[in-house]
Nucleic acid binder design. Structure first.
Lengths: 138, 138
DNA sequence: CCACGTTTGACAATGGTTCTCAACAGTGGT
DNA sequence: ACCACTGTTGAGAACCATTGTCAAACGTGG
């Protein structure tokens, strides 16, 4: 590795700050519930920007890999996204309006780890999402 | 409602025992991990039967509504199915071979209910699935 | 055996997501 | 400022799981 490569000291490939990525970030900053990629794409359009749908998907995936956004699936299996805090947590999502409460469950984390170890499973991941109807939509 | 309608006393529409539904049930009896609708469709073909893919989907949905099979989504958002016991439970699923352990989590159930009530959410449902690598695939 | 409502299957249609690939745009060096 | 080098983008095609359509086939109770 020489001084001419475009990687940072940790070896990650360079990520360029483009107009499109800024637009996606701006859109993400504009809501705090979960939205689909298409909805985010529409939001960007409403903000006067123009970013291709494929780019929205690419950017969201990248951000999710970097841990900067949460991606989860609604009851239909569609991916929905939002920017998130950096601690591991779960969500209580309103089925009707999408209002989201971020919840932590240390007890749950411990429980899943215990169960998995008990059965010899390694390299764990888990999903825990609660769907319901929020007070405003009742 | 007269004696001529084809509904049972509870008002549920009649469900007819057809060759196709028997074939799906037979296929479901043949494995105890989670399979996609397409895989189940293939299994039926291997068993010498022939059932349309749309019918497989319809039958699986019906069985899921009736609580006779579990449907959940893998990490790609695809629906996967298997016959299940009748109590509410969660799953520890091997990412590689699909081996599944059915686990109960009364503590988790209580926790989700408490969290939801605390925030005023009603009409709850929740998903909790653990993915990992089983001992055999390690 | 009949009449009626249910179920099925072949195929089209949907819809979310990813792929393709040529045009474009940051970057670091000169 | 200019260049060469790559990472990035966009339009649209391609994918693929899932659902809709509708006429033909089937199970049921009478």
């Amino acid at each position: 590795m020489t001084s001419t490569d475009h990687h940072d000291p940790e070896g990650r490939p360079a990520v360029r700050p483009t107009r499109q990525r800024r637009a996606v970030a701006a859109a993400l900053a504009g809501f705090d519930d979960f939205r689909s990629a298409q909805e985010i794409h529409d939001l960007i359009k409403e903000q006067g920007d123009s970013v291709g749908l494929a780019t929205v998907y690419r950017t969201l995936s990248t951000l999710a890999d970097a841990g900067e956004v949460d991606m989860l699936r609604n009851e239909d299996g569609e991916a929905i996204w939002r920017s998130c805090s950096d601690t591991h947590h779960h969500h209580l999502v309103c089925r009707t309006c999408g209002a989201t409460v971020e919840v932590e469950g240390p007890a749950v984390e411990r429980w899943t780890n215990a169960i998995a170890q008990e059965h010899g499973y390694a390299d764990l991941s888990h999903t825990l999402e609660i769907f319901g109807t929020c007070p405003a939509c009742r």
